[in-house]
Amino acid sequence: MKPNFEQLYLQMARMRYFEEALAGLWHRGLAPGEMHLGVGEEAVVAGVLAHLQHGDALSLDHRSTPPLVARGVDMSSMILECIGDEAGLCGGQGGHMHLFSPEHLAGSSGIVGSSAPLAAGFGLAAQLMSPGKVAFAFFGDGAANQGMLLESFNLAATWKLPVVFVCKDNHWAITTRSRSVTGGCLRKRAASFGMPAAAVDGTRVEAVWRAAARAVARARAGRGPSFLLARCCRPEGHFLGDPLLRMFREPVKQVVEITPPIVRAMMSRPLGALVSRCGYLGRIGMVISRVGGQVYITDPDPLARAARLVGDEASRRLEDQARGEVERALEDALERREQHA
């Protein structure tokens, strides 16, 4: 079996444009509250969900819109939900972190790590009532330190549940570097529960597709769960308006706001502590510069990489198609909103 690159690219483009549309709505003030985008995760989601069949279940985290777009959930209804409209997918009760589509067996949660036990439950139902069906769990590297997620690895392994655990490793747990709060290696950690664990470059959709193919085949055959560690990136930060990224996007305002209290903290008595305080300040500076380095210099764009797989002409054509779909969904959503406003 070989991947259909054009289909993968089309899915990735849909997700990207959809997230950009959400960002636009958030910046215009139409979407209240937090907004966690899945920009940078497109290759992971597309590569994994290319193997999804009807009847499979989807357990998602707070970045749930890209997988739901890829799953074919109505985009217009999701947009309405994210702007708090009662005509939205969940009647305005859920919002972007709590999106549910029973006909797609897809649900999300804003509690970090909870997608794993939910997927275990989906997997249990599949094992008993529809063998051959699979449950997919998406979560981040930050979630890998959550107890219920690790418990779920053990539960799925011992019960041989048909679950594919997909860790989207973007190296950050909110604004904390994952490495600084994570013991050992996540791939080995998962493997120690007795399931196959693979690490892939999550910005290369073909690599994700291949690794996922093995994991899904194993689950469908009733041989149990697998773990996929897909390294990806997070160019829009933890959420829109991420305080780390704001340092780069509006540096003057941030420096003016942050500097005076920091200077006071540095200069408070005894002044003998100044040297170590400089060191602590330097640590914060390192975190900020690392974010900048990743977002502006080193992190690759998974879409640009996937575009090379399909060529210029096809990528433009597919982008146009995806952009058109998202634009129509957005127009439709705003029109429906107007109608009953």
Partner: peptide, 8 residues
């Protein structure tokens, strides 16, 4: 894990 799996 198993209570939440019950939900799923």
């Amino acid at each position: 894990a198993f209570l939440y799996a019950g939900v799923g």
